[in-house]
């Protein structure tokens, strides 16, 4: 599971990773930074600088939402 999230794929490019997305409902089982849920890229790649600054890199979307998206403090 974590290999998938780290973005390791084989064969035709990352054919598997490229074609799978997370559908966020309650956000408890989707990783905020790692999973491809919003847009085409995981947020850690879309906002690499914010990811570097983030204190807790493995929190779920639900946790982030609970902190008001943590834009000020959670990062």
């Amino acid at each position: 599971m974590f290999r998938l999230r780290e973005g390791i794929g084989e064969g035709v490019g990352n054919w598997f990773e490229e074609n799978i997305r997370r559908v966020v409902r309650d956000g408890r089982d989707t990783l905020f930074w790692y999973d491809r849920s919003i847009g085409d890229l995981p947020l850690r790649l879309k906002f690499p600088r914010l990811f570097d600054l983030a204190v807790e890199k493995e929190c779920s979307v639900g946790e982030m939402e609970g902190r008001g998206w943590g834009i000020d403090g959670g990062a």
């Binding site: 490229e18 997305r21 966020v24 409902r25 309650d26 956000g27 879309k46 906002f47 979307v61 834009i71």
Partner: peptide, 22 residues
């Protein structure tokens, strides 16, 4: 930019996240 992306997201309690195969 990030906040802008997030501001439309509304979580649904008690419904599990799932996969979507493009």
């Amino acid at each position: 930019e990030c906040s802008f992306l997030l501001h439309n997201i509304v979580l649904q309690d008690f419904v599990h996240d799932t996969w979507w195969w493009l």
